[in-house]
Write a protein that binds this DNA or RNA. Sequence first.
DNA 1: TAACGGATGTTATACTATAGCTCTTCAGGT
DNA 2: ACCTGAAGAGCTATAGTATAACATCCGTTA
Lengths: 154, 154
Amino acid sequence: MSKKRGRPLTEALTEAERVCLSNGAQLTELRRTVLQLILEAPGPLTAYQLLDQLKEIRKSAVPPTVYRTLEFLMENRLVHKIEQLNAFIPCSDAHHDHHDVQFLICEKCGTVAEIEDHAIVRALAKAAEKQGFHPGKAVVELDGICAACSTSAH
Amino acid sequence: MSKKRGRPLTEALTEAERVCLSNGAQLTELRRTVLQLILEAPGPLTAYQLLDQLKEIRKSAVPPTVYRTLEFLMENRLVHKIEQLNAFIPCSDAHHDHHDVQFLICEKCGTVAEIEDHAIVRALAKAAEKQGFHPGKAVVELDGICAACSTSAH
DNA sequence: TAACGGATGTTATACTATAGCTCTTCAGGT
DNA sequence: ACCTGAAGAGCTATAGTATAACATCCGTTA
């Protein structure tokens, strides 16, 4: 799994603080800790992987602790859930529309890339309209092999 | 939940038989029964809902029974899993490319419509190519309100 | 100080899915 | 007829994912 992240950790956390403030929400120590674990991970983390790590820091952590925290972080657009994996990744950009994002899941290395492709969004909207369907959130997850894994020959 | 289905039950089952044969697979009584339950349902069924129904017919049914059967039915393109719901629906058309299908999930009535929109497929392929990503299967699930629910005013 | 709302603690349980081994059946080769 | 191998199904146990419901703590404000 590649360790590359778009932003340094502290910058991402500061940004998260700002986002929460502007949403009238508080990034408490627990929430900040969980977000940090997700940011530091080389790939998607399941709730229970997160729980195991969290327990080392916060003895009282149990499943509801992490699920509640994840719910908060998702509401505030700081993390995404990957439905196929039951796992969570940091949101790469708090500014884009949280509902119109797509994921590229590499079956080799396990990394998940987040993209925001407007052609896809438009195609989805148009297809929905054709059916008289009023769309809310879209789940778009592509499985395959990422660029790095397909060039490195094995 | 609307009860409308595209095809009569027996026709769908006959077609399923044909598909399995041409895949060198056998639609056994168990598999046929499970498929029929899914076809008759007004909406998506979870594995355990299916299990409960199956138990009334086949006393020996346990979770692996239904999961194995579902795996078979998915491999043979007879059912789809809706990732967001952990639930299963019949495939509306065994002929289309099983990987390039999209779902419209109504939050009001719970029905799921299956579509095959080539503009979406093309947009996905293009976006993947931009990233050097080699796509396999795509999960595309749109949440929203279906035409029927948005016209009937409530 | 009382009342409240948000955050977290705590216990229990519900729901989803798979591992791994056994047993039967049936087709194909001898 | 006999052996064998592969597919299907039975069976037990357990792993993994998620939520309900109620208790407690704490800071703000009426």
